[in-house]
Design a protein around this nucleic acid. Structure first.
Length: 814
RNA sequence: GCCCGGGUGGCGGAACUGGUAGACGCAGCGGACUUAAAAUCCGCUGACCGCAAGGUCGUGCGAGUUCGAGUCUCGCCCCGGGCACCA
């Protein structure tokens, strides 16, 4: 009597058994090899979306696979619970951010449990809880003591109508998203973390991280942007202070025909004082937002300041301009312009009729016309007086030496990386633990007064932070002198919470210290999985924080994540699935209709994890159909009763055994090494097809089918754990599948007497031959040349050579 | 604009280290079963030529390297992600 595949029933039963046996709860066991498998934790935005399901399933497959390898696996889950959407919901619906967040967490936790992830729920971490954020407040005060944090003015988007600071995302075409008012750039004092102090270490270690994708390492290298250059001083006519610029191309120094400073530069401000036109231009510059993409793509504008700089080598006067593309925050806020050999300078010079001078010529002696096209490659110096004929390196050194000798410059290393501004003028975040005292200045909150708890019962209006209206929050006393003082009302960037949560999972209940000995057992994370959109910021901040924690004596590890898998986005209609774009697909409907296993299988079978996955509703049906086929195959097989042991096989039986063990080998490699779950699924589907074509009810036949079905159930256990859990039981096993080991390949079963080789003539496929597995080269060649179709194409032509690729093909070249 | 990916049948994708292009699945078409439908099972399915054997073309576009290129090199085009206050 055959039974139906009822996912809802078997999934519930499997999950209950996992929960009751607490098999995914792990403690520290030094005798076992640990494996810490982590997914980037979600922001509790409401319901799970497809991107969540994809990344959690990928990670769960790896965790369950490693468990079957005998590892002691930790897979925790938590909530990146601070953030803007909670404030938006509060403004729109009048629900306090805390309640909205906790409700969402409850919903999403239920959905995760329904999907059967192998999480140790006893370690759940929620970043908006004081017991969590107190430790980042504490670490901040330690960083304060070490000089790793500091306060400086920095630019924000100011909405003059709502009287509030806007996130870049809230600025739409230069206007506030709620008020529609033109946004202004405004400078306010903010806290910064000195990530640049670790720039060299963060850069150098990338060379020793084989477990990270090259693309991510390259992006981080470019982001840090270490460059070796020279700082040069130009005198300015009528000014006492020289103007210092940084350049990586001192070899082009004689090609300088103008210079440019940022709108915020003191020289520009002074020039504006006596010139209304310049003042207006500087005002206009402030109206663009500060995003790099905007600065780089906007029209390059500038104005002469009416001041001249003196060229340090020739003594010539070069005009000084103010330009909208020069950044005050990068380098010195001033650049020397070499239009002949820099693309942006060239374009700007053409537009404003500034002279273009060639000082570099191609090394191969070819002629170039600098008025036609810019020449940016390194080459040989020309029109550079005593430096003519030098190459890049020689010129770099000669000019750098000259400036160092005269004290007018120095070799220096520059980074594109900027310090991390962590202040946010928002309510729903961790309070920055600083007290401002008129006498003592900015004072960190002492350890015994931590945490600084964020009040949760508030009303949000959308205008400013409610903390600024709560004297019971901000009124306090100075920890040093005891006088009345005022608390910082800014909160941390939410990236601060996500920069160390991975460590806290090791000891989420630790009350006395940020991290205890348990972190020493679990860290670093062995496998980290998350969206490629986090390739730079989140991952770089986490690498920085891990080092800060290391230097605080909290952990021995320098790198937080040994292996990184960056999963591609789930796209819909060609764009990232996101709430903001309104193109999300709710996975819940599919779970209700087909069960968790079908959804898990579909996500894994459809595309490799690193690739973007374009969502389509078709295909889910196919995953469901396959699970039904598997179910009925096991069901039908088990109806035949117990299986007798057999030690000799006929050809067909040996053939199915070979397919079984080829599949074990392929799936082990696909999941264990390549992370190609889609081809792993395809391989098990092929084995299923082979089983269904195999019709042999003899003892031997039933034995190899039993072996094949057990292999499929184990190989698919990480991907579709519920149905496999039940099928394993049906195949006659008392111990739950979750305690089973990954299957081994029987090398003897793989052996073959003959193999097929492809024969090409001049690289085109012309025939196939069967040869003995151990055939030598000359007999292969002879067999290949004897093939009728091969003979047709060789015909009378002399054979120039024959290439034999063992196990693959023969190519006859005529 | 800069940095990092990607582009292969009607669709998702496979081809791992330069060696049979299109595995596996979806959709479609034909058939079996059924009173019927659903479900299930079997077969076909890149384009073109051919009765067939087989042949020609074909991996975004253009060149190149090689006995052999989806894969490597150079130059383009298009799409996605990131660009520091979305997470």
């Amino acid at each position: 009597m055959s039974t139906a595949y009822e996912p809802e029933k078997i999934e519930k039963a499997a999950q209950e058994q996992w929960t009751d046996s607490r098999c995914f709860e792990v403690s520290e066991d030094p005798d076992k090899e640990k494996f810490y498998c982590l997914t980037m934790f979600p922001y509790p935005s409401g319901k799970l979306h497809m991107g969540h399901v994809r990344v959690f399933t990928i990670s769960d497959v790896i965790a369950r696979y490693q468990r079957m390898q005998g590892k002691h696996v930790l897979q925790p889950m938590g909530w990146d619970a601070f953030g803007m959407p909670a404030e938006n919901a509060a403004i729109q619906r009048g629900i306090p951010p805390a309640r909205w967040t906790y409700d969402n967490i409850d919903d999403m936790r239920d959905q995760m449990k329904r999907l059967g992830y192998a999480y140790d729920w006893t370690r759940e971490v929620t970043t908006c809880r004081p017991e969590y954020y107190r430790w980042e407040q504490w670490l901040f005060t330690k960083m304060f003591e070490k000089g790793l944090v500091y306060r400086k003015n920095s630019v924000v988007n100011w909405d003059p109508v709502d009287q509030t600071v806007l996130a870049d995302e809230q600025v739409i075409d230069g206007r506030g998203w709620r008020s529609d008012a033109l946004v202004e750039r405004r400078e306010i004092p903010q806290w910064f973390m000195k990530i640049t102090a670790y720039a060299d270490e963060l850069l150098d270690e990338l060379d020793r991280m084989p477990g990270w994708p090259d693309s991510v390492k390259t992006m981080q290298r470019n982001w840090i942007g270490r460059s070796e250059g020279v700082e040069l001083s130009f005198d300015v006519a009528g000014e006492d202070e020289p103007l210092t610029v940084y350049t990586t191309r001192p070899d082009t120094l004689l090609g300088v025909t103008y210079m440019a400073v940022a709108a915020e530069h003191p020289l520009a401000k002074r020039a504006a004082a006596g010139n209304a036109e310049i003042a207006a231009f500087i005002e206009e510059c402030k109206k663009t937002d500060a995003a790099e993409a905007t600065l780089e793509t906007m029209e390059k504008k500038g104005m002469p300041l009416g001041i001249s700089a003196i060229h340090p080598l020739t003594g010539d006067e070069v005009p000084l301009w103010v330009a909208n593309f020069v950044l005050m925050s990068y380098g010195t806020g001033a650049v020397m312009a070499v239009p002949g050999h820099d693309a942006r300078d060239w374009e700007f010079a053409r537009k404003h009729d500034l002279p273009i001078k060639q000082v570099i010529a191609p090394e191969d002696g070819s002629e170039i016309d600098i008025d036609e096209a810019v020449y940016v490659d390194r080459g040989v110096l020309v029109n550079s007086g005593e430096y003519d004929g030098l190459d890049y390196d020689a010129a770099f050194n000669a000019i750098a030496d000259r400036f160092e000798e005269t004290g007018r410059g120095r070799r220096t290393v520059n980074y594109r990386l900027r310090d991390w501004g962590v202040s946010r003028q928002r309510y729903w975040g961790a309070p920055i633990p600083i007290i401002y005292c008129d006498d003592c200045g900015a004072v960190p909150v002492p350890e015994d007064q931590l945490p600084v708890v964020l009040p949760e019962d508030v009303e949000l209006t959308g205008v400013g932070s409610p903390l600024k209206e709560m004297p019971e929050f901000y009124e306090t006393t100075c920890p040093i002198c005891g006088k009345p003082a005022r608390r910082e009302t800014d909160t941390f960037d939410t990236f601060v919470e996500s920069s160390w949560y991975f460590a806290r999972y090791a000891c989420p209940d630790s009350r006395s210290v940020m991290l205890d000995d348990r972190a020493g057992y679990w860290l670093p994370v062995d496998q980290y999985t998350g969206g490629v959109e986090h390739a730079i910021l989140h991952l770089l901040y986490s690498r920085f924080f891990q080092r800060v924690m290391r230097d605080e004596g909290l952990s021995d590890a320098s790198e937080p994540f040994t292996n990184l898998l960056t999963q591609g986005m789930v796209l819909k209609d060609g764009a990232k699935m996101s709430k903001a774009k309104g193109n999300t697909v709710d996975p819940q409907g599919l779970i209700d209709k087909y069960g968790a296993d079908t959804v898990r299988l579909f996500m894994m079978a459809t595309a490799p994890p690193e690739q973007a996955l374009e969502w389509s509703d078709d295909g889910v049906q196919g995953a469901f159909r396959f699970l039904k086929r598997l179910w009925h195959a096991v069901d039908g097989h088990c109806e035949g009763g117990s299986v007798a042991a057999v030690d000799a096989y006929d050809d067909a039986q040996a053939g199915l055994r070979r397919k079984t063990h080829q599949t074990i080998a392929k799936v082990s490699d696909d999941i264990g090494r390549r992370y190609k779950f889609n081809t792993a699924v395809a391989a098990t589907m092929e084995l299923m097809n082979a089983i269904q074509r195999f019709d042999d009810r003899s003892d031997g036949g039933r034995a190899v089918v039993q072996e094949a079905l057990e292999a499929i159930v184990k190989l698919l256990a990480p991907i579709v754990p519920h149905v496999c859990h039940e099928l394993w039981r049906q195949l006659g096993h008392e111990d739950a599948l979750v305690y089973a080991r990954w299957p081994d390949v029987d090398q003897a079963a793989l052996e073959q007497d003959t193999i097929e080789l492809v024969v090409q003539v001049n690289g085109k496929l012309r025939g196939r031959i069967n040869v003995a597995a151990d055939a030598d080269r000359s007999s292969i060649e002879a067999l290949a040349l004897a093939d009728d179709n091969v003979q047709r194409f060789v015909a009378e032509q002399p054979v120039k050579k024959v290439i034999v690729v063992p196990g693959r093909l023969v190519n006859v070249v005529v």
